[in-house]
Design a protein around this nucleic acid. Structure first.
Lengths: 154, 154
DNA sequence: GTAGACATGTAAACTGTTACATGATTTT
DNA sequence: AAAATCATGTAACAGTTTACATGTCTAC
C-alpha cells in the first residue's frame, strides 16, 4: 500500500487506535525501507505523479513475526486492535492463545473497575458514567471474544 | 487528589484512555498551579513526607467548563471516556446533547467501516477480525448510549 | 476552470515516556 | 529487616503533530 492508503485504512479505525499523521508515517516508511523491512514500487502516471506502493519483504515479515511472538508490553485497546489487524500473521493456535490472553486481561480490568465503581456510587452519579461505560464495554468485548474463541475451537 | 492518586485512578482506565506517566503528570500539575487553575494543600506527616493534595479552583472550573463547551476536536474513544469522567461538569441537558452527539459519531464510524469490511471479506478472513471487532464494539456502545439517553429523557 | 480528493514530503514545535534520584510508610 | 507500596520530582530522549510546501487527477 501507499502511505496515503495506509493512512486512509487506519483512519477508519481512528476512534479505536488513532491514525498517524503523514509527518510520522512517511518518515517511518523511509526508515523501514532503509532497514530492508519493506520494498517500494514507484508507479508513475503520465507525468511526474509518483505513487509509491510499499510491500513487506521476507525480512519484514520475520521481524513482524518476532514482534508478535513477544508478550504484549502494552495492554491498551489500541495495541489490541493493532494486533487484531495483523492477525493473519498468527497461526490458528497463536490467534486462539492471543484471544484467550486478551480475555483474561479484559476480565481482570473489569474486575479492577468494579470496586471503584461501587465505592463512589452514592456521591456523584454522573461521574460513574465512565465506570459504567468501562464495565459495559468490557462485557461486550468479553462476549465478542467468547464468540470468536468458539468459532476457532470448532 | 494527589498526583499519585490521579494516576492510580486513571490507571483503572488505562485500557480505554491510557494513563499519563509521572514525568508528564507532575509537571502538568505544576503548570496548572502556576496558572491558578488548581490550588495545593501540602499535608506533612510526622517527618518530611509531603503529600500534595491538589484541588480545582474557581478559575480552573471555568476553564474546564469552557473546554467542555467547545465541540470535541478529537473523536477518539480516549477523548470520549475522558469527557465522560468529567460529566459532572455537564448540566443534564448538556450531557444529553453530548451523548446524542456521540451516538451519531459512533453510528457514522460504524457505517464507514462496513464497506471496508465486506470488500475484503473473501480474501483474508483473519484480517477481518479487526473490522468485525470494530463493528461489534460500535454496536455495544450504541446500545449503551441508547440506555443512558433513555434514562436521561425520563 | 476550479474545487476537492489524491499524493508525497520536511522542519519546527510540542508532548510524552523512560530512566534516574530520593525518601517515607506499611506489610510480611 | 526486607520488600512492596506510597509519594514526588527532573532531564534526556523519543515520538508525534502541526504547519508548510508542492503538484496531479477527477468530477462538476
Amino acid at each position: 500500500m501507499s502511505g496515503y492508503d495506509i493512512r486512509s485504512l487506519l483512519e477508519n479505525f481512528s476512534w479505536l487506535l488513532g491514525s498517524p499523521s503523514y509527518g510520522s508515517l512517511y518518515p517511518m516508511l523511509h526508515t523501514l525501507l532503509e532497514e530492508g523491512l519493506v520494498s517500494v514500487d514507484v508507479t508513475s502516471g503520465q507525468n511526474t505523479l509518483s505513487r509509491k506502493i510499499y510491500s513487506i519483504t521476507e525480512a519484514g515479515r520475520d521481524a513482524l513475526q518476532e514482534q508478535l511472538q513477544q508478550p504484549m508490553p502494552d495492554v491498551s485497546l489500541k495495541a489490541f486492535v493493532m494486533r487484531l489487524m495483523l492477525a493473519h500473521n498468527f497461526s490458528r493456535a497463536k490467534l486462539k492463545a492471543y484471544l484467550d490472553q486478551r480475555r483474561s486481561q479484559v476480565a481482570g480490568q473489569s474486575r479492577a473497575l468494579e470496586p471503584v465503581f461501587t465505592d463512589a456510587s452514592d456521591e456523584q452519579a454522573a461521574r460513574n458514567l465512565a465506570f459504567d461505560y468501562g464495565i459495559k464495554m468490557a462485557e461486550a468485548e468479553l462476549a465478542w471474544l467468547e464468540s470468536k474463541l468458539e468459532l476457532l475451537s470448532q
